[in-house]
Write a protein that binds this DNA or RNA. Sequence first.
DNA 1: TTTTGATTTAACTGTGTAGTTAAACCAGAC
DNA 2: GTCTGGTTTAACTACACAGTTAAATCAAAA
Lengths: 203, 203
Amino acid sequence: MKLTDSTTESSILEAAKHVFVFKGFEGARMQEIADEAGINKALLHYYFRSKDKLFEAVFIDAFVKFVPTILITLNSNSPLFRKIEVFVDHYIELLSKNPFIPGFILHELSRNSERLSKIMRTVGLNPDPFSEQVLAEISAGSINPIDPRELIVNLLALCIFPFVGKPILKIVLFKNNEEEYAEFLNKRKQAAAQFIINSIKKA
Amino acid sequence: MKLTDSTTESSILEAAKHVFVFKGFEGARMQEIADEAGINKALLHYYFRSKDKLFEAVFIDAFVKFVPTILITLNSNSPLFRKIEVFVDHYIELLSKNPFIPGFILHELSRNSERLSKIMRTVGLNPDPFSEQVLAEISAGSINPIDPRELIVNLLALCIFPFVGKPILKIVLFKNNEEEYAEFLNKRKQAAAQFIINSIKKA
DNA sequence: TTTTGATTTAACTGTGTAGTTAAACCAGAC
DNA sequence: GTCTGGTTTAACTACACAGTTAAATCAAAA
């Protein structure tokens, strides 16, 4: 017998991801997902029984791809400044290739934050190792004192905000010029890291 | 004759704002808005002919309340560091009172960025005065060199991200403790400003 | 008292959408 | 050749929702 063709399932997931990410759960249409996957609605329900189930699969996929990688980098064992540079560079690079994922995740989380608790149980996310490294550097007197959580939020904010705020930033700061904005994002890999390091390094 | 009761119109707008902000355009229901405004669906359409028109009114209202105030503060004539402190303090305060507005605006803008161009024509937003102030300080040698646009993005990112990212930050960094997160936001008024100033001030 | 406009009621239209169903088709496995 | 499971087709149900309509009510203004 023909085994379940995994390309069908993955092409559904890919199509669903595309539609859900751009239109959100409420705005997405099962028909549109089927069309984009090159199949029909019946087969869509044959693979994923409901819109909710399909969305769940897409969301978890996007979430797992983006959120845990954050802390994996931060919990490696590199010197702090180097770690910040690598993190900002890698994360902005990842976001540049998937610019609509953060907005999608943030919006769907605020639409249903219950979902989050469920996912968090499966995905371990522990900021403590990084926090301890920061505290150690402070004790050693090599950086200015700062709440490690402030530093984490700042790291994330400086990387993610240029993407979720792109529509308005592009207009207000770059006269809607796409190339200039892309260039800005590219320079930002250096600039954001430098901005953070400047702020915490001892005078 | 009884004049159009402006309380009805404003209670509709208030209800609509509440529903649209929490559920988004697609997720919002006209019936729910009518219920929340204490009226019926027929009267809702009597005042605002369509869902689109009602949404437009709500969105412009939210947008005008939040976006231009940003640059008004930044274009005042205070010394740079003082300006940064005041901006961060005022903006985080404003956001604390309306924590769901930024997510709403960002999401709806990415859902329909055409809307933005239309609004932008009515709302003047010019970052140049602030940029010139920054460039002047750099020339005078009183701060480290930085692209003024980077600085603007950083200012906004550090203020806004804690609100749009609240669901996940609260869980990962604060074990879902609401009070601790509120306290964090409050401390952040000082911390974020200090973080920025530390970064740009000459050693 | 008459007029006018705000407001309600309740039923209705039309449409879009998720999900179902049944029959048929097709290709590889046995 | 038959069986099996992925796949299509096309029609269908059931429902939710935006928007409409018409008639009635009510309160204030004239």
